[in-house]
Amino acid sequence: MSVHDLLKEYIETGRIKLDKSKHPELTTYHDPCNYGRKSERTFGHGYYEEPRWIVQQCVENFVDTYPTKVNNYCCGAGGGAWAMPYAEERIYYGRVKVKQIKDTGAEMLIAPCHNCRDQIMKSLRQEYDMMDLEVKYLWELVADSLVIEGVDE
């Protein structure tokens, strides 16, 4: 089961409750290659719509990148590049992603992939002067938006 299917199921069936007023900032989404193009090619379904829907249940203002979905650019750390010694090339690769993100004007970026999140949060932000950008996992955003019965009420 994909993380997207599970989170969507929780939200749609009311098993979890979310408060989007916790995230008023303009937010964008990064399509990981594995959940998008490669999932589409391998399993016949690319996860493009589900994560965008989930994000929009957690934030008030959403903006997409250009290009998007199947035509979106890789963060630059795919294929194991995050764990390879070619840091200079990895950062150079990421310049395209950085431009896409900056062009949206978003203050927060959501990524449902460990590699993508680390590349953007721990490397590209520093290298390309965008430390003001907040980067979260998709499930981190959901966890931060939760209203838990008996705990928050």
Partner: peptide, 24 residues
């Protein structure tokens, strides 16, 4: 060569290839 490792296997090329060559 380093190229197969510098490439992140992101599949944009394969998606765009008009002959559907299995580049990845």
């Amino acid at each position: 060569s380093r190229f197969p490792w510098i490439c992140t296997l992101c599949a944009r090329c394969e998606h765009g290839c008009p002959m559907s060559i299995d580049l990845l």
